[in-house]
């Protein structure tokens, strides 16, 4: 029994140590630095909470939070709508089911950065050329060049890439719906719309929860998309929080200040995740 316990300890202790070293320790350091005015090199002083107060006065930080949330919420909703639709389609009686499924999953295996470069080209050169060819001058400008609309370009690319994974999750959920439930319903004469809301959706509700949480969380971290498409511009209109912390922390020499920003971001994410799980789980129970 003793040796068994020792074996279990040996199985976990190295992992715990590594995890602490590479994850928890930097996290604590980050919190520590957030109370200093460190540039990333050289001398530093404690500055108390002043970094935190300054973040709240920082228009660039506000704009980053605004953009990130706008982008994440819109993308999450769109991704879930499209992937649910595609999954329902793939789950019905269609031809070429396996091949279609393979194609719809394809974007998920590609590097976001490279996909971003390709979309950058599409928005900058291809779409304007196409618009000119078919004579729609309204579309001939690059949407990535407009501070008001550039975020839409980022959403389009993000949705294109992310629908794949969520589709597979929904498809997995739909396959847990037993076929005889449908048959019973169609005998009752329920129309497809009703059938979806009354039968299918409640069964896949847990997948809906997971998908919403996962998609929102990954979109709140958005980084590669921005670097590839806009670099945060025009102005700061598409600068996400991750990009701001990266570029402000290194380029601006604001290591301590951006650490404070990151701590705030951390708190926001935790609060949001808890809130989201509560709401969605309540829904599930009600259904």
């Amino acid at each position: 029994m003793q040796s068994k316990q020792r074996a279990f300890l040996f199985m976990t202790i190295p992992a715990v140590l590594l995890f602490f070293l590479f994850h928890t320790y930097p996290l604590l350091q980050g919190v520590f630095y957030s109370f200093t005015n460190w540039r990333g090199y050289g001398d530093w002083n404690f500055v108390g909470f002043s970094n935190y107060f300054n973040v709240f006065k920082d228009m660039r930080a506000w704009s980053a939070y605004g953009f990130t949330f706008q982008f994440a919420i819109v993308s999450t909703i769109l991704v879930n709508i499209f992937s649910l639709l595609v999954a329902l389609g793939l789950n019905s009686n269609i031809k070429f089911q396996k091949s279609l499924r393979a194609i719809y999953f394809l974007p998920n295996i590609l590097s976001i950065l490279i996909v971003g470069f390709i979309f950058q080209f599409i928005f900058t050169l291809f779409l304007p050329q196409l618009a000119e060819l078919i004579g729609v001058t309204a579309l001939s400008t690059n949407i990535l060049g407009s501070p008001d609309h550039a975020w839409i370009g980022v959403v389009i690319m993000a949705v294109w890439q992310a629908v794949a994974f969520n589709t597979i999750l929904y498809l997995a959920g739909l396959q847990t719906v037993p076929a005889d439930v449908y048959e019973a319903a169609s005998i009752d004469g329920a129309n497809p719309w009703k059938r979806f809301w009354k039968i299918t959706f409640p069964i896949i509700a847990p997948f809906f929860t997971i998908n919403m949480v996962l998609a929102l969380k990954s979109f709140l971290m958005v980084f590669d998309h921005i670097i590839a498409l806009t670099g945060g511009g025009p102005g700061y209109s598409t600068e996400s929080i991750s990009v701001l912390i990266y570029s402000g922390g290194f380029e601006g020499g604001q290591f301590g200040y951006q650490s404070a920003n990151a701590v705030i971001y951390f708190i926001v994410i935790v609060a949001l995740s808890v809130f989201q799980l509560r709401i969605l789980q309540k829904r599930e129970v009600q259904q």
């Binding site: 994850h23 996290l27 991750s242 990151a262 971001y265 994410i269 935790v270």
Partner: peptide, 21 residues
């Protein structure tokens, strides 16, 4: 719970110290 709660930690907060470390 220690491991799982780390899922809530956004990468940017550990990024800056990690680069140095």
């Amino acid at each position: 719970y220690y491991f799982v709660s780390a899922m809530f930690v956004p990468f940017p907060i550990i990024m800056l110290p990690l680069v140095r470390q």
